[in-house]
Structures are given as C-alpha cells and as structure tokens.
C-alpha cells in the first residue's frame, strides 16, 4: 500500500493548542496539599481539520492510506460499498481508522474478504463495518475511528478521533 502523499502537511498540526485533561509540564509538587480533589476536566484534545483525500481517490473495498492527525499517525480511508451508521459521503459508506493496533501498536492490514483490519502481532481483528468493533483480540479499546466530513467538492476531512491512539498519550502531539 502506498502512503497517500496528497495530504502531506495539509493542515498538519494546525491546532496544536489543545490543553486537555491536566496541565502538562506543571512543576512537580513536593509538598502535597492537605486534601487532593479532582476537578472535572475535558478528556478530549483539539483536533486539526485535515483533508485526507477526495472521494474520487477511493475505490470500493480498497484501503486508501492516510495519516491523521499528523504524518506519524498512519490510518486508512475505506469506501465499504455498503452504507454504515458512521459512514460519510454520498453513499454513506466511507470510514476512516487508525492502522496502529491499540493493543501493542503493530500495523493492521485490511482483509477485503470480510472488511476487517487485522493485527499480525497477536491476531486482533476489528470490523470496519461496525465502527471498528474488536471482533476478537487483546485491545481494551475498539479501533479508533476518524470523525469525517465531506465537502461539496468531495474532499474528505478528518476532524477528530474517538479513542486514544496507540503510542501517544495525547492524540495531538
């Protein structure tokens, strides 16, 4: 599979302003306060809206390599050929996922036969037609999926991810 070069650097790290759950980098306290209380906080980060491709680039049931939210985070777009609840595009059948297994970070490969992403490391399987549901496997998350939109010209944008990506403690580095 060839990495899609069309999207390189498009919007990359455009919104590296996410502050998130805790104040990262805060000086380590050496004296503990009398009563530690947790303030409710957002667990989401601010994602870039990146163009990943155009619907013309996609062929039914063929994975199209992308990266999101930056070049070091490989993923795929797939036009499934059948409408699914999280699908976008005129046919409601375009989905996008990370291709790093959320168990140990091995690269997933797409099985066209049953439209699953599969991990050669430890045999985990994720169903692209069911929002990345782990059919079987070791990951404690279903497969992180992209929040996609398609504009009038058919350009496909990713605007977020619904789970933590493997290998980063913040999805936007």
């Amino acid at each position: 599979m060839n990495r899609c070069r069309k999207i390189e650097d498009l919007g990359r790290r455009r919104f590296l302003t996410g502050t998130g759950l805790m104040t990262a980098g805060m000086a380590v306290a050496t004296v503990l306060p009398a009563e530690a209380k947790t303030a409710p906080s957002a667990a989401l980060v601010k994602y870039p809206a990146n163009r990943l491709g155009n619907i013309k680039d996609l062929k039914i049931n063929e994975p199209f390599d992308v990266a999101y939210p930056d070049d070091d985070a490989p993923g795929v777009l797939i036009k499934l050929g059948t409408r699914v609840p999280t699908g976008v595009g005129p046919d409601g059948d375009i989905v996008g996922f990370t291709t790093l297994c959320p168990h140990k970070g091995f690269p997933l490969s797409y099985a066209t036969g049953d439209k699953t992403l599969n991990c050669p490391g430890h045999y985990s399987r994720f169903d692209c037609e069911k929002g990345g549901l782990q059919v079987w496997g070791h990951a404690t998350q279903n497969l992180p999926q992209y929040v996609l939109t398609v504009d009038e010209s058919g350009d496909i944008y990713a605007n977020g991810v619904d789970e933590l990506l493997y290998g980063r403690l913040a999805n936007v580095l």
């Binding site: 667990a43 980060v45 998350q141 279903n142 992180p144 789970e163 933590l164 913040a170």
Partner: peptide, 13 residues
C-alpha cells in the same frame, strides 16, 4: 456502534 470512550489524552506519569 461500537463503544468508544471519547478520550484524546491521559495524564502523564
């Protein structure tokens, strides 16, 4: 659809 936690980051040890 599949259960998702909608978590984008975690506190760092």
């Amino acid at each position: 659809m599949a259960y998702k936690r909608q978590i984008g980051q975690l506190p760092i040890v």
